[in-house]
Design a protein around this nucleic acid. Sequence first.
DNA 1: TTCGCCCGTCGAAGCGCTTCGACATCGGGC
DNA 2: GCCCGATGTCGAAGCGCTTCGACGGGCGAA
Lengths: 336, 336
Amino acid sequence: MVKITDVARRAGVSPSTVSYALSRKRPISEETRQRVEAAVRELGYRPHAGARALGGSRSNVLALVVPLRAGIDVPVVMRFAVSVVTAARGHDHDVLLLTQEEGEEGLRRVADTALVDALILMDVQLRDPRLPLLRSLGRPSVMIGFPSEATGLTCIDLDFRAAGEACVEHLAGLGHRVVALVGSPPEVYVRGTAFAQRVVQGFTGAADRAGLASAVHPCEATPAAARRVAERLLREQPALTGVVVHNEAVLEPLVDAFARLGLRVPGDLSITAICPDALAEGLRVPVTSIALPAAEVGARAVELLMRKLAGEEVPEATLLPPRLTRRASTGPRTLA
Amino acid sequence: MVKITDVARRAGVSPSTVSYALSRKRPISEETRQRVEAAVRELGYRPHAGARALGGSRSNVLALVVPLRAGIDVPVVMRFAVSVVTAARGHDHDVLLLTQEEGEEGLRRVADTALVDALILMDVQLRDPRLPLLRSLGRPSVMIGFPSEATGLTCIDLDFRAAGEACVEHLAGLGHRVVALVGSPPEVYVRGTAFAQRVVQGFTGAADRAGLASAVHPCEATPAAARRVAERLLREQPALTGVVVHNEAVLEPLVDAFARLGLRVPGDLSITAICPDALAEGLRVPVTSIALPAAEVGARAVELLMRKLAGEEVPEATLLPPRLTRRASTGPRTLA
DNA sequence: TTCGCCCGTCGAAGCGCTTCGACATCGGGC
DNA sequence: GCCCGATGTCGAAGCGCTTCGACGGGCGAA
């Protein structure tokens, strides 16, 4: 193994100079640095990760905790993971993969052994048991998703309020005047899930600003509930022509229910959703939708972590702008 | 941070004794060990990973290289990854996630910096450019999948020959006397892909042993090709009642083609496949199939690596027994 | 000219752990 | 009763890197 002293000898300098030349933590003359870099190249020098971590108290490794739970969209998780790894490499860091299963003990372990410098958590729960731990870990962390109470921590996610707004604005732009939001199950709002409420706020606010008539309907995650909501919508808002769905589980049954009620999409009814692209694309009528920008979230999460590692202050909450993908389910209001 | 000297002081022994007590690399009296362990618990001691790696020249980290390429079945990859992480944790190791994108340079980097002790590669190509690198890396590695030439390396995968056999035996057991294999595209056989040829060998051998009439049909990965193969099968083997499909891309079109030709499954034709469970389950007629046992492959890969790290010799090739899942697509031969 | 300063470099002291050799103690075999 | 080999423990020497303090030389200011 070639070590720093070998490089030093070859370049005719001391080991500390080599270290400084490579880390640029102290001024080194251009000429000396050139010689050092040449020696590094010629010898194929690679600093020993363990030694570096021990000496410099930085391992240059991030922990990424991925969820396993049922109901998780695996391809989305994978996209997060890949974007995190790629972004981390861009900052000269590697990524250690932890499974949710390892739980708090796993987090504590990798943090306490200084195996990692910082952590990224995915699939954060509203009342996530790991929050107090994160606060006391003594290492920077970023959560992908928003728990109900995250003071002192850092979160990043899609801006669900803007997503709600974007859906409404899209419909308004197509001429729709009466819209409805089919939302999450009632208990989600009761628990105060941040992202669900944000959607409602965005939806309602945008509808008001655009002068649309609007209504919000929470909906259980069952096909039967979807059917009931569909019927109720038509009864209570006979002039309804635009629907926003923020409830993955009922999107398909809801579309079916509308069809069974004799409504054509988008002829009679335009539908937009906030859901994974795969779901929106796979339906009989592909649905105009806003998806979670996994790649961007991952990259930004890493960036936040790097800034925290550098001692910078970062915002507690980062919200990413939604992007709406037009598909077959939305069209201009037809004046029947 | 609590360090080994703190533990030593508390337990009233020297640091080296603590080290030996914990690693059990030298005999330590039961009583002393108890005291050391108590001190560890009371102080919440965690050995510093970097120091450990530096002192002991073992980082206790494995690298896992996951594929990104198009056409990759992401959930399957994820299942591999999770099983590798879980198995690694069972051996007190962590897992560093590398993306295929990083390429050979990434492998060299994590190996040369001693960030990892050993490597696991997924999605191995037949003539994988990384093979010579693996041989020269000076660290143990295991490949999931078989390249065409892997002397001196270690591979593990599903036993595709046995999978071919199992399909035939299942059909033979149901009374079928004339069977066909719809295989991979011709060029796959031309290139000598190990796993494709193994399936053919297993299929043919088992058919011969069972006294069945059999034929093998390579098939391009297009719906049109699937239709052509379906027609040809019926023309050339009029008495055909059993089909084995080893070509994910054409399974669905092939089933459709048979339906369009007026054959009912499994009434007229029994079909088995070697493909991911999700695909087999998702078809109109769920297909009896043999899937890649991702969890087991991952766990075994880690085990092989651990044995190599321990200096043991391990077999170059490990083949896992296939397991056939019965679904609706196979039934007894009906004597029309 | 001299003082003080900054630039560029060096030497040495760790970082926290493992491991090697040494040493003391204790039995058992002759 | 003595020697020898286990057995159990200790001290010290690294592992390869970073970093701190120091130092010499050059330069601008006084």
